[in-house]
């Protein structure tokens, strides 16, 4: 049975003051459960990364709570925060910027082990590094002594995953982990995340603007617009039976070779797009359960 490890409970994060206040995340409630992935999908500026940063305690919410195993983390003691930091690990978007160019791959994996798992002795560290690299399907003899620039983007992203796994986390937050990779290596990395999630019973927050990959890794999906969740539910249900106009718009804009522009098969009217955006930006709607475990923010038509 899957249990909730990390949750945002009615969390709001704003920037700026007074009339210039921007709601980067507005009343967000999400739950990350063991062995399951939640995908956050939306355009740039929709608040996905703000949610990730709230989950990482990089930002504290202005209102609402970040709950780790049911405990609010905003006012937690330093010791609890340290445990939290070990349990919640992040995989970043840019595999080129997230590794130190002056250090070997072995060093990148050794540091979190020394910091978060001091019980591991020196001899064991090398063995653990080997095991981690094998786990992400890299050859330890080949890769461990190398520097980041000697690896491809896909290999680097595997190193990032190994580094996140080094401290035996319970939660992985992956922010666009494949958007900077070549198409032919994307599926390999997504498969790896999927395997890790299952084998290690990880709870995962998967952030992407590519709704097709969300279907590939995440059991649940939340679609964001303008800092709000406009629809969420089981991934297959939301994609096959979208209820919110923005979700429908997003799905209709996914590149689809069956709908060629020349055949007029995919005509997206600018007026319609603007209307959907305006409707989706409204804050007076409520998340309504449209079918079991499938919620959409439905606003009365203006």
């Amino acid at each position: 049975m899957s249990e909730t490890i990390l949750a945002l409970d009615d969390a709001t994060k704003t920037f700026g003051h007074g009339a210039a206040t921007v709601y980067a995340a507005r009343n967000i409630s999400i739950a990350l459960r063991t062995g399951r992935a939640l995908a956050l999908v939306g355009e740039s500026g929709s608040g996905k990364t703000t949610c990730a940063r709230l989950a990482m305690l990089e930002y504290l919410p202005n209102a609402g709570r970040v709950l780790f195993r049911g405990q609010p983390m905003q006012d937690a003691a330093a010791k609890e925060i340290a445990a939290y930091r070990r349990s919640v690990q992040m995989i970043f978007q840019d595999p080129f910027a997230s590794l130190n160019p002056a250090q070997t791959i072995a060093y990148h994996l050794k540091r979190p082990l020394q910091l978060h798992r001091p019980e591991i002795g020196k001899a064991e560290i090398d063995a653990t590094i080997r095991e981690l690299l094998q786990r992400v399907k890299l050859d330890p003899d080949l890769v461990a002594p190398k520097y980041p620039h000697e690896l491809s983007g896909g290999q680097r992203q595997r190193v990032n995953i190994a580094r996140a796994l080094a401290v035996k986390p319970e939660v992985i937050v992956a922010d666009e982990p494949t958007s900077m990779l070549d198409v032919s290596v994307r599926l390999g990395v997504l498969n790896l995340l999927n395997d890790m999630k299952r084998e290690m019973n990880l709870a995962m927050l998967y952030i992407t603007h590519d709704i097709a990959t969300a279907r590939f890794v995440a059991e649940d999906i939340a679609v964001m617009y303008g800092g709000q969740i406009v629809e969420w539910g089981a991934t297959a249900e939301v994609i096959d039976n979208p209820q919110h106009p923005y979700t429908r718009l997003l799905l209709s804009a996914v590149p689809n070779p069956d709908l060629r522009f020349e055949d007029g098969g995919s005509d997206m009217q600018p007026d319609h797009v603007d209307a959907v955006r305006n409707l989706s930006a409204r804050t007076d709607g409520d998340l309504i359960e449209v079918s079991p475990r499938h919620f959409a923010r439905l606003t009365a038509k203006a």
Binding site: V183, S184, R186, L187, L190, N194, I211, A212, T213, R215, F216, V217, A218, E219, T235, A236, I239, D240, L251, V254, N256
Partner: peptide
């Protein structure tokens, strides 16, 4: 063919 196979499909290829 390999390139085509690298795109996860929106409606097929379910988890």
């Amino acid at each position: 063919k390999k390139l085509w196979a690298s795109f996860p499909s929106l409606h097929g290829g379910v988890l």
